[in-house]
Design a protein around this nucleic acid. Sequence first.
DNA 1: CTAATTAATAAGCAAACACTAATATGTCTG
DNA 2: CAGACATATTAGTGTTTGCTTATTAATTAG
Lengths: 109, 109
Amino acid sequence: MIEADSIDAVMRALADPTRRAVFERIVCANEITVGELTKGSGVTQGAISQHLKSLRQAGLVAERPDGRKVYYRAQPQGLAPLFDWLTHYHAFWRDRLDNLRATLKEIDP
Amino acid sequence: MIEADSIDAVMRALADPTRRAVFERIVCANEITVGELTKGSGVTQGAISQHLKSLRQAGLVAERPDGRKVYYRAQPQGLAPLFDWLTHYHAFWRDRLDNLRATLKEIDP
DNA sequence: CTAATTAATAAGCAAACACTAATATGTCTG
DNA sequence: CAGACATATTAGTGTTTGCTTATTAATTAG
């Protein structure tokens, strides 16, 4: 069984376009500060901090405070719930299609 | 480049728990009517219809009207944007980790 | 033709959300 | 220490969202 809570947190976190963009930038930059993320994001530093909180709670990013800066990096295993969910339903589909094919072959071999 | 619009629609559609549950039921049942989906969903038929509209617009499900009933089925290629997005960032990560490993090996072979 | 059934849609509403501006907290620098 | 800097947090606000009830449209049954 896929854990419903984590998939929920991950999906919700990635559903918002600006928050997803923040996540993508964090992935591409190995490590990046809040200030850098704010620059060119189109929103306020406060907004970025709030998005980071969501991403952190979803397990998608981790923080590394250094002095007065905080570096964020992506957490690879954070996408696991989403990955599992997708694979599960993909497998489901594939099996059903296989069964369908088999049945059709049985009827008309 | 991953198409931003479709990934957005798919993520938004699957972000809501009840809508995601509707989708999962549609996947598991090969075909299912609105009435059956409503039964045991905890929400009204109107709500279900609205969720189906979102899923349809995201390309995740397709309808097959038959008499006064409407049968819904999942559309396998609907998850493709999500799948592509995931693979893209997964690959990104893997490459970066590979590079890191290589660099470490260079320093201390 | 009339009733009942099935699904889509519309209007209204409360809750959640994304954002801003302002403030608080902690850190470095002169 | 005082002021600049980097980030988190809070309060307030407009918009979106998920839901309900009621209605409409279409199809079938008696």
